[in-house]
């Protein structure tokens, strides 16, 4: 169906460029971080930067801002993924048969 008022290209393109520069800056941060700071937490820091980038993309490029129903479905899905993650990680980090297991080291 005929949807929506037409948008003004010149007025709205600014936000796209701003987001681009934000993402470029965060990508640069990705490369600087392992050499410069918090190097003992590289993995966590990288995932944190990734999450920030993902959030920006979701909100601005994917127009999630202002979508109530779709927003909740996304939150629900992400919650489920996080739950699967945490339970399985709890299980594997409490792995109690490491001494008799072959899977952590090749049986030479």
């Amino acid at each position: 169906m005929a949807n929506h008022k037409t948008v003004d290209y010149q007025a709205e393109k600014g936000i796209y460029y701003k987001v681009l520069f934000g993402l470029l800056a965060l990508t640069a941060l990705t490369f600087i971080q392992p050499e410069m700071f918090l190097t003992q937490y590289t993995f966590g820091m990288q995932m944190l930067i990734g999450t920030v980038k993902a959030w920006i993309i979701l909100m601005y490029y994917m127009h999630l801002k202002g979508e109530v129903l779709i927003g909740w479905t996304v939150i629900f899905a992400v919650f489920i993924v996080v739950f699967f993650f945490s339970i399985v990680m709890i299980d594997v980090s409490n792995f109690q048969y490491a001494d008799v297991s072959h899977i952590t080291s090749p049986a030479q």
Partner: peptide, 27 residues
């Protein structure tokens, strides 16, 4: 366009996970 952003979004996590985990000073 949404699909393309999703493909980008996946790369946002794939890239640091594989390439950056072992970057820099190794602990």
């Amino acid at each position: 366009a949404l699909y393309w952003d999703l493909v980008h979004l996946i790369w946002v996590f794939v890239f640091p996970y594989f390439y950056m985990t072992g970057a820099g000073v190794i602990h």
